[in-house]
Computed example of a mutant assay.
Amino acid sequence: MGRRVAVVGAGMTRFVRRSLETGKELAWEAARTALDAAGLTIDDIDAVCIGTAPDAFDGVHMKGEYLADGAGGWNKPVIRSYVGGGTGVFCAVQGWYHVASGMFDRVLVVAEEKMSSTMPHPQGAFLTIFDHITERPLEPNLLWIFALEMNRYMTAYGIEKADIARVAVKNKRNAAGHPAAQLGQADITVEDVLASEVLAWPVQRLDVSPVSDGAVAVVMAAEDVANRTCDKPVWVEGVGWNLDTAYWTNRDLAYPAYVERAARMAYDMAGITEPRREIDIVEPYDPFDYKELHHLEGLQLFGKGKAPEAARDGVLDRDGDLPSCPSGGLLGV
């Protein structure tokens, strides 16, 4: 595992549709806030890890190089990663292994996205990620591909749409008190979600996280540095990652095996043998409401097809037995 690593500072911008701030400025705002929280300056940082969406989203070629100075990478080693929707998580993992390996003592990790720049809609940029012979002629977009997966998940396990909608309600209510949130809504109901516009059945507008601009940053440090820097370092006990095939037709749409493989890697590193008993809180990736449930099952916190029951029974609420996305997640923030 290498050296022990901790998070000693964090920063976040507001998440809104922005018209003035550039991606570079968003990265700077988050980085500065994280450094201030850690009581450090950019001169204390040894390297910078950047996570950001495809260049086409901002209309900026070589996006990593463009963001580098705004993210604090001037005259420092910089690396940019992009692994689709998991980029925010993988960027932090990248920061971890740069410190754990012994290469650096302090690393600034910055994740940024500015989707509102793409005209007429970011879905246009996504068309280029599909196979140019077997998929692109169908003009796919992520909405209807996720709709296929959601439909498969519901069909395989007999899941009611209302039970999935409860996730959107929970997260948007949780986000109502979040100072950085875009879509917090304290009074939203399941009926509101079920009555919202159908985008690609069974996906409806309130099942989906919004197009958003924003950035987050964390400062990660080796154990000896962390103990000198922070009274309460947040220790990284385990990390895991796994990439499934880019060909959707080759995936098991009912169950995210890639999440299970990543989870088992992290659990093994942390010495966790009974996740449901040992994990107290969870923040799964939730670009769609069903994906939170999908991922909870992949994380081995519930059996296959059982996470919707937990949502229905209040287990995932802030005051439940296993709070899930108490911040509001992507659906609310």
Rank of each mutant, 00 (worst) to 15 (best):
G39D: 01
G332H: 11
T41W: 00
K304G: 03
T249E: 12
N174H: 15
L293C: 06
G305T: 09
M12K: 11
W235I: 04
N75R: 14
D231N: 13
V8R: 02
V234T: 03
G85R: 06
E274Y: 03
E160P: 08
E112C: 15
R173I: 08
Y157V: 07
W144C: 12
I279M: 11
D213Q: 11
M115R: 07
T13L: 05
P122V: 10
W144M: 13
M119S: 12
K114Q: 12
G332N: 08
K24Q: 15
A147W: 08
V107I: 13
D131Q: 13
V259Q: 08
K76I: 10
C49Q: 13
V234H: 04
D268G: 15
A270P: 01
V259K: 08
P256F: 01
A53Q: 04
D187T: 15
T33F: 02
P210F: 04
A34L: 04
D207S: 09
K24M: 11
A68T: 08
G70I: 10
Y258W: 06
K306C: 02
N227H: 15
T33Y: 02
S209Y: 01
L330A: 09
C230E: 01
R276V: 12
T128A: 14
I188G: 09
A307K: 05
R312E: 01
E283S: 10
Q94W: 03
V203H: 02
T87I: 11
R318C: 10
C91Y: 03
W235S: 10
G240E: 06
D213P: 10
R318P: 02
C91R: 14
G240F: 11
E149C: 09
A168K: 05
Y153C: 03
V107G: 02
A34C: 07
L316S: 03
A168T: 14
L243N: 13
I42C: 02
D69F: 08
R3H: 15
A266E: 01
W241Q: 12
R4V: 08
G2E: 14
A180L: 09
V89R: 00
I133R: 15
M150P: 00
M220C: 06
K114D: 04
K232S: 07
A270S: 12
K172E: 00
R205D: 01
A246K: 11
T189R: 02
G238N: 03
E278P: 09
R264F: 01
G177S: 10
F146K: 00
I42Y: 06
P323M: 03
G102V: 04
M119P: 00
V225E: 08
G240D: 05
Y66M: 03
A307C: 05
E149H: 07
A38G: 00
A266I: 05
R173W: 10
G124M: 14
E309K: 10
N242Q: 13
A10C: 09
D213K: 04
H294C: 00
Q182G: 08
M154C: 07
A30C: 05
R136L: 08
R136H: 03
R4G: 06
K63V: 14
L183N: 13
E197G: 04
K24G: 07
T229F: 09
A53E: 09
P137G: 05
A162S: 15
G240K: 07
V167A: 10
R205M: 15
F130K: 09
I272D: 01
L20K: 14
D244I: 04
Q94M: 14
D313M: 09
A195Y: 02
T128H: 14
